[in-house]
């Protein structure tokens, strides 16, 4: 098992909500990245959890930037560091809104240009920072303040979109598996060119579950097959063992949905749609891993 450094870059003074998954995941992202790092943060929860000027709760350099601008800003920064002969890691840490919605154009362009930085999308499946409005990453049936009767469109296939750009390294991960987060960030940073990590961040505030269940919800997401841990390295897909096991013998969907207030009152039809989408995704990944696709 990889030794995770004891040094902390997320200090004990964030203004994050209780049970916040994104600040917890950021701990491991930064432990993997180390000192020689600039974190580029578009408008998202992480803009807030740093605290208020002149203080900051993060012990690495953070460049805050406008909502749609993270990937382009990181492109310029990375190019400038390379031009100056510096090896500084540039990591975008963006929510799902800044990635699947308003920031998608800039992300796509940076991937196409093969810019040398890591883009981490921590996905809490809504605009949680501004009080739980729907995003393109909100799953089918979930209630948000802008889908009060449940979302009537499926979650956008962000990974499919990113994969279409053929980045040298992309992976999914989840805050419930810190060693997985750590290992994948290290691997991503060791590869030259664009890399992308999609991190599931179960958010007690907007998913409406008890803040002590963040890790448990992450585990259930994987065990139910609703979130699959895998890597795509130079086009080769590897489903990680925890997901492999889960897909063979998945936890009932109900175990994942029922603690979440956002799915309260969800009907069987919506559940069937969620299950069929998850199965379709699993099938595609298994085929890709076997080279069948």
């Amino acid at each position: 098992m990889t030794e995770i450094p004891r040094e902390e870059f997320v200090l004990k003074c964030t203004s994050a909500c209780a049970g916040c998954p994104s600040s917890l995941a950021l701990r491991y992202v930064l432990k993997a990245a180390g000192h020689d790092t600039v974190l580029v943060v578009p408008a998202c929860c992480t803009s807030v959890i740093q605290g208020i000027f002149p203080f900051t709760s993060l012990n690495v350099t953070v460049y805050n930037i406008a909502f749609a601008a993270a990937a382009a800003c990181a492109s310029g920064m990375s190019e400038a560091f390379r031009k100056a002969g510096k090896k500084t890691s540039v990591i975008v840490y963006a929510g799902d809104g800044g990635t699947v919605d308003i920031g998608l154009q800039g992300l796509s362009a940076a991937l196409e240009r093969e810019e040398d930085f890591l883009y981490v999308c921590y996905d809490n499946e809504a605009y949680s920072n501004t009080g739980m409005q729907r995003s393109g990453a909100t799953p089918y049936g979930a209630r948000t303040t802008t889908t009060p009767a449940g979302k009537t469109h499926p979650k956008k296939d962000l990974d499919g979109i990113v994969a279409a750009h053929n980045p040298p390294y992309m992976a999914t991960t989840c805050v419930a598996y810190p060693q997985d987060v750590f290992r994948k960030v290290q691997k991503a940073l060791s590869i030259r060119g664009p890399s992308f990590i999609h991190l599931l961040a179960p958010c007690p505030t907007s998913w409406r579950f008890s803040p002590d269940l963040t890790i448990e919800m992450g585990k259930r997401a994987i065990r139910s097959g609703m979130w699959i841990l895998y890597e795509r390295e130079f086009g080769k897909v590897t489903i990680n063992s925890v997901s492999k096991a889960a897909l063979k013998n998945p936890l009932p969907l109900e175990d994942y949905l029922s603690p979440q207030g956002r799915f309260s009152g969800i009907g069987q039809r919506e559940k069937d749609i969620l299950i069929s989408q998850a199965r379709k995704m699993a099938k595609r990944l298994i085929h890709e891993e076997e080279g069948v696709c």
């Binding site: 000192h35 807030v48 605290g51 000027f53 350099t61 460049y63 805050n64």
Partner: peptide, 13 residues
């Protein structure tokens, strides 16, 4: 930016 002296740019103000 000087990574030896970490700072937050454009934080909540």
């Amino acid at each position: 930016i000087d990574v030896a002296h970490p700072a937050g740019y454009g934080t909540l103000t």
